[in-house]
Structures are given as C-alpha cells and as structure tokens.
Design a protein around this nucleic acid. Sequence first.
DNA 1: ATGAAAGCGCTAACAC
DNA 2: GTGTTAGCGCTTTCAT
Lengths: 344, 344
Amino acid sequence: MKVTIKEVAKEAGVSIATVSRVLNRKGGIKGETVDKVQMAIEKLHYHPDLIARTMIVKETKTVGLVVPKLSNEYWALLSELIQEELWDSGYSLVLCSTDRQIDKERAFMKMFVERQVDGIIYGGLPMNHFRSHEDYTHIERVKERNIPIISFDPNVPGIPCVVGDHLQGAFDAVEHLIRLGHQRIAYIGGPAVGVERELGYRKAFMMNGYPIDEKLMVIGPSESMDFGFAGMTELIASGEPFTAVFCGNDMIALGVMKAAYNAGLQLPEDLAIVGYDDINLAGLFKPMLTTVRQPMRDMSKSVVRELSQIMEDPSLIHVAKKYVFPMELVIRESCGMKKTEHHP
Amino acid sequence: MKVTIKEVAKEAGVSIATVSRVLNRKGGIKGETVDKVQMAIEKLHYHPDLIARTMIVKETKTVGLVVPKLSNEYWALLSELIQEELWDSGYSLVLCSTDRQIDKERAFMKMFVERQVDGIIYGGLPMNHFRSHEDYTHIERVKERNIPIISFDPNVPGIPCVVGDHLQGAFDAVEHLIRLGHQRIAYIGGPAVGVERELGYRKAFMMNGYPIDEKLMVIGPSESMDFGFAGMTELIASGEPFTAVFCGNDMIALGVMKAAYNAGLQLPEDLAIVGYDDINLAGLFKPMLTTVRQPMRDMSKSVVRELSQIMEDPSLIHVAKKYVFPMELVIRESCGMKKTEHHP
DNA sequence: ATGAAAGCGCTAACAC
DNA sequence: GTGTTAGCGCTTTCAT
C-alpha cells in the first residue's frame, strides 16, 4: 500500500497539518516536532504525492515543450539545454516532437491544457506552414486559457518570442560570399527553416545591386541532409552556373557537400558553401563549414527565464515581447580564400 | 475561472456523475442525455482535469525516460521514436537527460515516483559506471514500489531489459577487419558505450589466436567526437603502429576520422575504421563509414510494448526478461577493399 | 438511466 | 505551535 501523509502523522504522533508544514518548510514548528516527523518520513520511505498537492496549489511544476524533430542536432541540443534549465528551476519537461504534423501539434496543445502544465515552450512550425490564420487557433486557445506560453524561434504573433535574427544572419552570410567575389550564389532552404533566411539572402543581393536568379533558389519543405543532397543534385543537373551556395541550415549544407563531392567538385575551390546554425558537426569535416552561429545556450536560458517570469505573473502573457538574438558568422574553410583583399 | 465538471452538469441539467459517464464512455445512458452533455461541453470549452482524475484512477498516463545525453544522434533518435510510440499508446513523455551525472539520475528517479509516472524507461548509465552495487539502489527502490521499469540498453540486473547484442556486434566488426587482413587493430571506446564492445573486440582476437596489444586500447569515459579525436591523436603520437581502428560508436569514429585526416592519413588506404550505431551521419562522408547497425525502430517499439505489458500487469516486473536484438554489420567504404578474397 | 455522496492525498484557513 | 476541517475536480459505489 502507498504510504500517505496520514501514516506519517500517526507514526510521528502529530496531525497531518503538522506533517504538511514540515514538508513545505512553513516554519513555526518546534524543532523537536520537526525531527519526529522527519524520522517518521524516513522510516516509512514516504514521498509526498505531487498529484494531490497539485489539486490544491494549482501548479504541476511541469512545462511542455514542442519541437518539430528531435533527430536533428539543433533541436536535440535545444531540448537538452531547456530540460537542464527547467530542472534547475524545479520543473519537469514533457517533451513532444511533432514530426511537422500540424494535427499532432494541436493534439499536444490539447494534452498540455488537460495535463495542466504550468507553461509551454513552443518550438513548433513557423507560421508560414499554416495555410491560414485559422490554423493557428491552437495557440490562441492556449493563450486564452492564460497558460503561459512562449515561442522559441518561430515568430508567433501575439505571444512572447525568443528568436534569432535570421534575416541578419543570412544577410551576413551572403554578404560574406559577395565580398569574396561570388555573384552566382544559390540558396537551398525553405519554409522548414523559415522565410527570414531567404529574405536575408535577397536583401544582400538588393543592397549590392545584383539581380537574383530565381533559378538558383531551391525552396523545399524539408530541412534534412537528404533534402540538401537532392536539391543540390538537381541544381547541378540543371546546368545553371553558380559558384557558391547558401544553405538554410547545416544539415542541408552537409547534404549539399555530399552532392558536390559526388559530382566531382573540389571544395572549396570549385564551390563555396555556407551553412546555418553551427551545429557540432559543422566543424568536423573538410572543408570545415563556414556557418552562422546561434547562441543556443543564451537563447535557451532566455526562454526559460522569460517563461518563468510569465508563470509568476500570468498577466504578462498579454505583452508579447520579442527577444531577438544576434547571429554570428563563423568563418572557417568552406568558402576558401578571398579573391581580393584590402586594408582601408 | 476554470470550467469544471460541475458547470457542465448544470449547463446540461444533469448530475456530475452523468457527465463523468459520458466523458468516460461508460454507456448505459440515453442518447439524448449524451447529446445534451456533449453540447454543454462544447459550449463551455470544457477540458477534463487529468490531475483530478489521476487522484482516483491512479494512473497519470505518463512515462519517464532517462537518457545520458540528448545532443547525440543515437539518444535523440531513440527519444524521438519512444515519444512517438508512447503517444500512440496514449502516454506522455517526461524526458530527463542526466549528462552522465549519477546524482541527477537519482534525483530524476525520485521525481518520477513523486510524480507517479505509470512507468519508466531507463536508458541511463551502464552499471560499470557505478562504483558499487549500493550505488544502484535508486533503481531497486523504484522496483520495490512496483513502478514498472524497463531498461533500454544498459543491462541492469533484476529488471527487464531491451538490449542490443553488442558483444556480437563488436565481434563481427573486428572479425571483418581481421578478414580484411588487419592484425594491429586499435580500440577506442570505454565505459560510456559499455564494456560489451570491448569484450567483442577481445573475443575476435582470441578466436583468431592473435595477441592483443593493450597499448592499442584507448579506454576513456566519454562517447563524444571530441573524445575520439583526442584518443586518436594521442594514439598516433604514441608511435605505436596500427592499420585499423574499431570505435565504440559512430561519433567517436567521426572524431577519429578527423584526427586521421589531420595527421595526413589517407582513408581508407592508410587506415581502416569501423564505427558503431549506424547513425544517419555515418553514410554521409567520404569514406562512408562501415559500422554496426542497431535496429532502433524495432528496439524502441519493443521497449514500449514490453513496458505497456508490465504496466497492465505490474507483477510482471519481477520476471526480469531480457530482449536481446541482433546487430548488423553495414559494410561501406571506410575499410577499403579486401586484401584477399576467395569463394569457397 | 441517473443522482447522491463518499472519498483520492494533500494544503490552507481557522481554531485553540 | 499544533489540531480540525473544508475542500481541490473527479470517479465510483450504492441507491433509486
């Protein structure tokens, strides 16, 4: 049989209220009594029932996290960091991976409210995945219920967000390529990594007065290595000339590298590549990947800090602050050497 | 204010018992009444409170998973697969990453019992991480409380386990190397990946009557790329000759490859490498990694199936069945060509 | 076919 | 300082 607070009380010869008090360190109790209770707890191997507690204090000390995919270093690392931060703040993590299925995302949200999670970190699909605003109601619904929610990376209007400045990051990456003398730069990415990177790409061209060749843009629904491989293979087959490619993320870049090797290209001599995210793998292979680093640690610390704040004062959920983090271009080998160089 | 079963009852003009009945599809209710209740539920946007329900039915529909690290494709993939399987069976996943800290592992277990998870999947540290049997009591404690628990991969005595046959896997890998003509084969691995792989390595040598040069064995506490890199670098520096290396896992193998390249070695000409796990990345780079594949999908399906069974009938926890899965050697490029070949 | 009422294990007034 | 008691939102006998 499960041992409850009652047994402890009897064993210690006090009332259940007293036991509850020492459990919650309320103070105002004789040291002697505290000892008696603690002895009883030890003796009976008593663990308080968090579920019963929740019924009264109305907090589960649980937060839900939604990510699109776990078998991707970026999201795996994020989940790990968040779990750690959360644990340090006394929360457990209920993890849900949607595999990019919108209806799963909805089901998870429903589960979160039924389970009474104290807060939600939403690392789900970017809004451009949803056909209409109406598709986004599962988020609204949560907000209406005053469940603290914060978005990580997808920029969700109306709720607080911690996002990276991907327009800037992509801009810097492409600008770097342009400085290196490239003009025919391909882009392989798409909605799965968000539209900002494509916009940053376009901005760099616009700012430099270069035309964009839409034939060099491979936009697809995925963010995987396989997508990068397929996209690159197709691009090469098209015969369209290009000397560099900017990838929506590092996994795509890895796929692109493989396709380039397959086609007999020398890297970085024949082709410059830049990725995005700076996952661990990025620095591993030759040529080591030039990429855009996201300050993951800072960002995850930030989401849980902000979420905690909202959990403390739920009214804060109505001020949809945005925290945008700067991205950092990490120059390694995959773009080769500058073709021209001057010191001003 | 939160809408409870009471409001629904009033709205529908029935008692809360009736509402509860339609909620749980108990049957024996007039269709008309069911409709009334359902209308009320819709109208009020009622969601049942799973927490309150739990107090009575004593199940949280929650299972806890502990893994050593999430930022490692192997565990990330496993977590993803398990989450998926669990969800399909109606369970939510509470995920905990220990970062290989034993005290964290203990704290998680404690949390699991307080939170009344219905079951636990333990993908924690192999027993050789624990100094003594006494250190393993957190597992025992859980079992004593009759909380269904099953181990994934670490072979934990006394509880059901789903494990890979790593002794066989490692044996096959090293045997392959030997068949290819190698005799000076290094091993880079250690307790983090379990001892079975080392034993498989030794077995292959023993069965072939070759001596083992302990100087070729790099045993360390980690399973990361960095460890592989450092271990390999050190091994090369030692001046000890060798023509092949068997790695405890693919991440280590990747690190080893990098170190080999750094040292100016040609792969696979100068050095044969075989990894373990067959993570996605394994097939990506040149030379594509020969490795040992774990049937992850089958294995994760199996853990949750077995766990479900124990959750249905908790007495099953006392029969510590083991499910051992065969490993499969995947031959790619990193070992080069056979030096001799005959067809019998 | 439905309602009334007794808890589940705990916390939080409110007494003494 | 400590005990008594009223719930939290739900499921489940036991009546009717």
